[in-house]
Computed example of a mutant assay.
Amino acid sequence: MGQSLDVLRTCDGSDGHDAKMKPTTNATRGSPTWDDDVVVNCAALEEGVKSVVASANRGGARISDEVLLNHELLQYARQGNLRGVSEALDKGAWTETRRPLVMKPQKPDAGKRGNGDEPAVVGMTPIMFAAQKGSVDCVKRLLQARAEVNAVEEDGWSALHFACKEGNLQVCQSLLECKADPALMNIDEQRPEDVADEDCRLERSGKDD
């Protein structure tokens, strides 16, 4: 692509859990943030990517444009950057990409149906990141590009779970309008409304009265 490494300044969820700020049994509002928890992992991934790119420049293994483009889409979705998300999609980025730097394929084979046991469920998709960020514009753009609204990651969390957890009501509405399933259960047998922020629940309860 002739791009700089700016797009690789942050990792793409390399261990399947680092990007999720999900509650644990003893979770408190003072718990460490995602940035505190995974700075070492992200730094290690970034150094690894730089090493591979350097190798490519010397004629070794090459990181494809497709990998970089999918990684770029994830980062823009995580940031809530509508322009970046749109440009990446227009260039052909895959809406269901999760960990493009470490997982293959980058896209499914044309005309091939999934067999139900593909390993691509590890990590978060762009729409999950955008929902967690609370970017309704990015969510709508991804839905327009036919992103899978009910995709789940390895713990069974969907975009609607993430939106509810963060109290992003507009995002929840946009997802539900596009047939997000409010009955989806994660591995802890929690539906999206079960993980909703307490303040969000109170607000919703007040509107229902």
Rank of each mutant, 00 (worst) to 15 (best):
G206N: 14
P23E: 07
L89W: 04
A27Y: 12
L143V: 03
V149Q: 04
V52C: 07
A61P: 15
D209P: 15
A159S: 07
A130M: 07
G80Q: 01
D18C: 15
V7H: 13
S31A: 12
T95W: 04
V152A: 07
S64G: 14
G16P: 04
S135R: 05
E189Q: 12
D37L: 15
D209A: 14
G13N: 13
D35P: 00
Q170R: 15
E154Y: 02
L74M: 09
K133A: 02
K104V: 07
R58G: 11
Q170S: 07
G60M: 05
L45A: 11
Q132C: 10
T33Y: 00
V40K: 13
Y76N: 12
V149R: 02
K207M: 12
C11D: 09
D15R: 08
T125S: 15
D90F: 04
H17V: 15
E66K: 12
E166N: 09
K91D: 03
V102N: 06
D65R: 10
K91P: 01
G116I: 05
C138V: 02
K104L: 08
T95N: 11
L5P: 00
V122K: 05
V121F: 08
V102H: 10
T33P: 06
C200R: 04
L69W: 07
N150C: 03
R191F: 00
E203S: 13
L160G: 01
V52P: 02
R58C: 11
A163C: 01
K207H: 13
A19L: 12
G80T: 04
D12H: 01
L169A: 10
Y76L: 03
L143M: 13
G48C: 05
N41W: 08
E193S: 09
F162H: 13
V195H: 03
L74H: 05
T24D: 14
K50E: 06
G206Q: 14
E198Q: 12
C42V: 01
K207R: 15
T125P: 03
G206R: 15
G111R: 07
D155T: 14
D188Y: 09
V102P: 00
N81P: 00
R146Q: 13
L175P: 01
S135T: 04
E87Q: 11
C138W: 03
N115C: 13
E203Y: 14
D155M: 09
Q173D: 14
R113S: 09
L89N: 02
H17C: 09
E153S: 04
